[in-house]
């Protein structure tokens, strides 16, 4: 049997992280193809609901990326995202999904290499955690 490939949802902000992912692509930097990247205008747009719904629909991990603190296109959106994701992590812990399946990272538009690194390490982390079993009670 082939190795288990996790399904990952990655939210990337329009101004830094999405171009960062683009740069990783055009620079031909290799990274695991497990993630479906969804572009949002700002990392603050990613509400706890997006993350919870991703898990409900069968994602094994959620990666949220945004501009570095101080670089946000909307001045303080990423600070808001940090707060949001901290709370989402608490909810995930309560629900038993575990906060390790969620990660928030800052990737700027010039950091194609960093995007690939983040993605590689996150995929490894989720592989270690294994598949999220959606078994009904």
């Amino acid at each position: 049997m082939s190795e288990y490939e996790p399904r990952i949802i990655c939210f990337a902000c329009n101004w830094c992280s999405y171009p960062g992912a683009d740069l990783a692509g055009v620079s031909r930097i290799q990274y695991p193809p497990n993630a479906r990247i969804i572009r949002t205008m700002c990392s603050a747009r990613v509400s706890p609901v997006f993350v919870l719904r991703a898990f409900q629909q069968g994602a094994d991990g959620v990666l949220v990326t945004g501009c570095h603190i101080g670089d946000c296109h909307y001045i303080s959106g990423n600070e808001r995202a940090e707060e949001n994701m901290k709370r989402t992590a608490e909810i995930l812990d309560l629900l038993g999904i575990g906060k390790d399946r969620l990660r928030l990272e800052w990737v700027s538009a010039g950091e194609g290499g960093r995007f690939a690194e983040v993605m590689t390490s996150f995929v490894q982390q989720i592989k270690k955690l294994g598949k999220l079993k959606l078994k009904e009670i």
Binding site: P48, D93, L94, L95
Partner: peptide
């Protein structure tokens, strides 16, 4: 609240080991 409470209730119908 963006439906977060409903999602949380729905997710409790899955057998995750909760820490509450």
């Amino acid at each position: 609240h963006d439906g977060v409470l409903k999602l949380m209730m729905e997710l409790q119908t899955f057998a995750f080991p909760q820490t509450r």
